[in-house]
């Protein structure tokens, strides 16, 4: 994915605030790109634009040769469903689905070409990889914060996306759990050849990144 000269301004009343002032970043298969910078520097804004969750004011986001910024809502939705995975600060699990069902829902949404049996196997394998096989029938309410985040990672990867967008995935976890989560993200995405855009505040987490990009006031420095 190539992020090219992305600009974004927000208008509040009379004042127009330019949050992104022309950002270029390229994400590579199997590589973790960490995005760091002071609070308010525009990291989350950039990530959500790259992920097709909001529009940019200018610039382009090239994915598999096509420009996301020129697509309509439905085309973007299809790409989000099939080629992107998301992990955020909170796990955002569906409260009435078990761990296993969270993952099979994702496969449904992604229109996975897998057969029923293959889906079950893929789901089981993914749950195994985040070490939650013994909790596969649990509902989110009975999971710890770290466990929830692991489910979120499993859900974000079960449909084998091309890119994983992770916005402060460890911010709500203690240091030990943060390392667990990051290790998992690193190994799984390497294994599967997934590009990762990781926003983090935690210097310790940078050891899991292949590249670190720093932003300040809407530009890469």
């Amino acid at each position: 994915m190539q992020i090219k000269d992305i600009r974004k301004s927000f208008r509040s009343g009379e004042t127009v605030e330019e949050v992104l002032k022309g950002v270029d970043i390229t994400l590579h298969e199997g590589e973790v790109t960490a995005l760091v910078g002071t609070s308010g520097s525009g990291k989350s804004t950039l990530l959500t634009i790259a992920a097709g969750l909001q529009s940019s004011s200018d610039g382009s986001v090239l994915f598999e040769g096509k420009d996301l910024t020129l697509m309509n809502q439905e085309e973007i939705r299809q790409i989000r469903a099939s080629a992107f995975g998301f992990v955020f600060q909170s796990a955002h699990l569906v409260p009435f689905l078990t761990v296993e069902e969270q993952l099979s829902l994702m496969l449904d949404v992604a229109h996975s070409a897998l057969s029923k049996k293959e889906r079950k196997a893929a789901t089981a394998q993914m749950i195994e990889q985040v070490g939650l096989t013994h909790r596969k029938n649990a509902y989110p309410a009975s999971l710890s914060g770290g466990e929830k985040q692991r489910v979120a990672i499993a859900r974000a990867l079960v449909h084998q996306p091309k890119i994983l967008f992770a916005d402060e995935p460890t911010a709500a976890l203690d240091s030990k759990r943060s390392h667990d989560i990051m290790k998992q993200i690193q190994t799984l995405t390497k294994q599967m050849g997934i590009a990762v855009l990781l926003v983090t505040h935690d210097e310790e987490m940078l050891q899991y990144a292949d590249r670190v990009v720093e932003m300040r006031d809407g530009v890469v420095v």
Binding site: Q78, R80, S82, F84, V94
Partner: peptide, 12 residues
């Protein structure tokens, strides 16, 4: 919120 998340992961 749930709808937002479902839409986020690509539910129609």
């Amino acid at each position: 919120k749930l709808y937002g998340i479902l839409k986020g992961i690509g539910v129609k």
